[in-house]
Structure formats: C-alpha cells, structure tokens
C-alpha cells in the first residue's frame, strides 16, 4: 500500500516537473535585464574579461565575503572537534 502511494506520488511529481520544464527553451531566459547590463557594461566598469569573476568579486562582493566566512567557520568547527586529537596535544577545558 505504502509503496503504491509512494510510486503514484513520485510519478505525479515527475510529470509535473516535465510539464513545467517543457515550455522553457534553453538559452533564452524569461527575464534578462540584469544579464544584459552586466554583459554590456561589465568589461568597461571592472576591467575583467571574465564576466563571472567580475560578478562574483565586484558586483556581488558581499556574497563572496559570506562564502569565505562560512568556509573559515567550517574549518574552525572541524578544528574544535579534533582539537584534542591533533598532534597528541592535550588542551585543557576551562
């Protein structure tokens, strides 16, 4: 019973997804104002030939700061988990 219900739900989901995707055409997005602006003025304003890097590091720099901080915090968290184990050093808790 559960398997039949699961299969029906999955098939319905698949059909919905395919029906949603089919009208779209690859390479022609619905809204492209921001893309057109970046492509037209990105090279002159930032001096980058690579538009992806211009967007990531210049127009959307705050997102990159967040990404770097997330990576830093992840490494610090891993270090906290394995702090007692690294190099055999015993670190006293407060």
């Amino acid at each position: 019973m559960r398997k039949a219900v699961t299969a029906i739900v999955l098939i319905a989901l698949l059909i919905t997804l395919v029906a949603m995707i089919l009208p779209l055409t690859f390479g022609s997005p619905l809204m492209s104002d921001m893309d057109d602006y970046f492509i037209r003025f990105g090279q002159e304003q930032t001096g980058n030939n690579n538009e992806c890097t211009a967007v990531v590091f210049d127009y959307r720099g705050f997102d990159t700061i967040g990404e770097s901080t997330v990576l830093f915090t992840a490494v610090i968290g891993t270090g906290l988990m394995f702090r007692r184990l690294f190099g055999g050093e015993e670190v006293e808790d407060e």
Binding site: Q43, E44, T46, G47, N48, N49, F57
Partner: peptide, 25 residues
C-alpha cells in the same frame, strides 16, 4: 598596477587589468 582600461567586446586579454579583482582572487 592592474589598471589598464579594457574596451567593450572581444579582445586578446591583458594580465595587467582587473582592478582589485586579481588581489581578491
């Protein structure tokens, strides 16, 4: 440093461009 202006359109590419982006890279 990193300040050669770049014109719009395809170009061969110069390493000495980009402003602060190479430093951040």
């Amino acid at each position: 440093l990193f300040g050669v202006p770049v014109a719009f359109g395809p170009n061969p590419g110069e390493l000495n461009t980009g402003g602060t982006v190479p430093l951040m890279n």
